[in-house]
Design a protein around this nucleic acid. Sequence first.
RNA 1: GGGGUCGUGGUGUAGCCUGGUCUAACACGUCGCCCUGUCACGGCGAAGAUCGCGAGUUCAAAUCUCGUCGACCCCG
Length: 370
Amino acid sequence: MYKLIHKDKNSAARLGRLTTAHGQIDTPVFMPVGTHGTVKGITPKELDDCGAQIMLSNAYHLFLRPGLDIIKKAGGLHKFISWDKPILTDSGGYQIFSLALLRKLTDKGVEFQSHIDGKKHFLTPDDVLDIQLTLGSDIIMPLDECAHYPCSRDHAEVAMKRTIAWAKQARKSFEHKKTGKQALFGIIQGATYDDLRQECAKEIIDMDFDGLAIGGVSVGEPSDLIYNTIESVAKILPEEKARYVMGVGYPPDILEAVERGVDMFDCVAPTRLGRNGTAFTSKGKLIIRNACFQEDFGPLDASCTCYTCKNFTRAYLRHLFYAEEMLGLILLSAHNIYFFLDMMRNVRKAITEDKFVPFKKDFLEIYNKG
RNA sequence: GGGGUCGUGGUGUAGCCUGGUCUAACACGUCGCCCUGUCACGGCGAAGAUCGCGAGUUCAAAUCUCGUCGACCCCG
């Protein structure tokens, strides 16, 4: 499903193309997160207009609400949410981690209480695969255990081994159930322990998944640890498979990862920070509520061509946030999504021209200077 | 003219009866920070009041007493 098109001459950055049943995806790609089947604050049309090639959704959340029956009756997730481009679904592995108080893990699967109604559920790696097959997800992520940070070596090892066991199970079942239209990725865990990462990577690579993901990063550790993990794992990944770093990241993180050969990214930052009043701009983060923008009648980002930047001033956006008007959240979220996607367009262009390294340097210089 | 209620950060209030634990609380507002496979229009923090003013009682007063100023209400 992945085709390597071009390798940057001065770094490990790569240009590629993913082919799915719902269309092609140029990589490196940023995938907006739409946990509940919607990228918060953005309509599918707007998402499409600003160049989104694929969106994320979450099997755990959709399984609990509205439930598989409803999505099946609606004709699948794509129809239900009115998005006909590719969808990648996360399994809920991250939810097991973030809603930790509610769960019990065994090698067979995970028992947890619904955060919505308290009802108990038990899901095996097979169940989680089936849920995503039913949703009609283009890229399926298997159940994994995402360790927190800091994490003891013992715990990291247990989580890593469990992730491998679950991956084996999912991979085996997928062999019998696959339709040819849906892809299954493998997830590499191991926290910040390089030997565990290497061991896990080898095992996961051997299972011949359609793509390979590095999970369990950006869970609270310092940036350089994220980069180190990505670098050491990416080095041993096969060239002919797409590489996805789950949950990363802020613009600098994405650029660092691209430079190390990563193709796919997702992060809640553009929408969550947008909703909470922070805009990503070419000059770094901008907190729209700050008093200095009260009479600033310029755009969020003078070099941005998104709808928000072409039509609205910082003073107005600030006003919307203080007045608690929902348009503020929408406009900032939309700008942030556009900013990320536009950055990725520039990343791809730079790789095409073998100019990724200077591109990254220039971008970060302006971004960090503020 | 008589009687009463009330005056506490920018705003609205709590505390007063039963003085000390009030270096004065809460909400909103103001200001700033945080958010990385979203339980998230969320989270954290800071600044800001000599408790209308004056006197008295007391070891100690936002709190009790008297006076005074102001706001409002009732009766004439």
